[in-house]
Amino acid sequence: MVEEKSDSKSTEKILALLERPEMEEAVANLAELLIAMNESGLLDLLKVLADRGVLESLMKYLMTPDFLRMADKLDKYVHVLEESGEILITEEKARTGIGGLLKAMRDPDVQVGLTKLIKLLKFLGTVKEQ
């Protein structure tokens, strides 16, 4: 005979779950959580988020090739920002004059840094207000 589906399987599963001793505490916890979420407006926010239109808009905002690429490298950007931020916010005692600048220019790292700065300036110059 050909086996066809029955509807009772999921009901059986739910009943079995309800009979578990941990269930009482879990349900009480859930009810408390629901009340708190309702009072704080979080439940309403979730309802909006579960609506596919809002989720779709959110995805459209986040899912662009540029955003995806940037998000992909966020850990690297954070590293660069953290390191350079530390330099920016720390009080600097040393002073550099023309002589010091010329000397620093012999440092290969400074040379690479300068190249990057020039590239950045060149790019900034091409950015137009959109």
């Binding site: 779709e56 995805m59 899912m63 662009t64 090739p65 690429r69």
Partner: peptide, 24 residues
């Protein structure tokens, strides 16, 4: 049907001709 718009957004943003040479 619920998930279609969400997947569509992902597939569109990551189409090979859109990611192009730069890749991802």
């Amino acid at each position: 049907r619920k998930f279609e718009p969400i997947f569509d957004v992902y597939f569109n943003a990551t189409e090979p001709n859109i990611l192009g040479e730069k890749g991802w």
